[in-house]
């Protein structure tokens, strides 16, 4: 029974936390139209739809193709705004174009819409980890006057870094594991959802902060 309850909690851990954060963020004027807000809305909507498809025993793997692509675009825009220099802007823009091209090649030739897109997710994770590490490096080189624990962007970046780094190996192997139809696959996705919850916790801390940097 406990396993069932826990299973139920884990199942919706990629939907409920972002939904709660959306309501909290919506109450703050400066966050309502922010990119992290749109990211949370996207995650909540797509994950909810994926869960509904699971309940009706339909294949929901195509949702993750859209999730990967649109999340990557939103987070790329977030980092363009965060770094705020012409060089990084063009670099991130270039990376986004390259990613889109590789995503299309992957979807058309390697991992079609009815399979989990491990390749795209890994590439997105790799690039986004790079951006988040670059942000940490900037903090080392040019420490801000504000205490880092009060910086919203620090916590958002930490959430993104945690989610995409820790899940990297899950993303790499998930396509193969789904094709093998492993019965223990559910534990992998529950691990993913737990890490998703960790990211939401970091986002929550960031939402509570008053300053951006």
């Amino acid at each position: 029974m406990i396993a069932t309850i826990l299973g139920g909690i884990f199942k919706y851990m990629d939907t409920l936390p972002p939904l709660v954060l959306i309501f909290i963020a919506a109450g703050k004027k400066e966050l309502r139209g922010s990119l992290i807000f749109y990211f949370l809305v996207l995650q909540c909507a797509l994950n909810l739809y994926a869960n509904l498809l699971t309940i009706s025993n339909a294949n929901n793997l195509f949702i993750y193709h859209y999730n990967c692509l649109f999340s990557f675009f939103i987070l790329s825009l977030f980092y363009i705004k965060l770094f705020n220099t012409p060089n990084t802007k063009w670099l991130i823009f270039g990376a986004a174009l390259l990613f889109t091209l590789l995503f299309l090649i992957d979807t058309i030739y390697l991992e079609p819409m009815d399979q989990f897109n491990s390749n795209s997710f890994c590439l997105a994770a790799f690039i986004l980890c790079g951006y988040s590490l670059y942000y940490f490096m900037r903090i080392f080189k040019n420490p801000t006057g504000t205490h880092i624990s009060k910086s919203r962007n620090f916590w958002f970046n930490t959430g993104i870094f945690s989610y995409y780094t820790i899940n990297f190996f899950i993303f790499i192997t998930y396509n193969k594991l789904t094709l093998e139809k492993s019965p223990l696959l559910i534990y992998i996705w529950q691990m993913h959802n737990t890490i998703f919850l960790i990211m939401c916790i970091y986002f929550y801390v960031g939402i509570q902060c008053k300053t951006n940097d």
């Binding site: 624990s149 870094f161 899940n167 192997t173």
Partner: peptide, 27 residues
């Protein structure tokens, strides 16, 4: 394979926690 994936993921969790804590305390 599942155990391997979970093990590696757990290691990555420790690594990211270390990085975050280091950055936090440095700043």
């Amino acid at each position: 394979e599942i155990k391997f994936v979970l093990g590696i993921t757990f290691l990555l969790l420790l690594l990211t926690t270390f990085v975050i804590v280091f950055v936090f305390f440095y700043q």
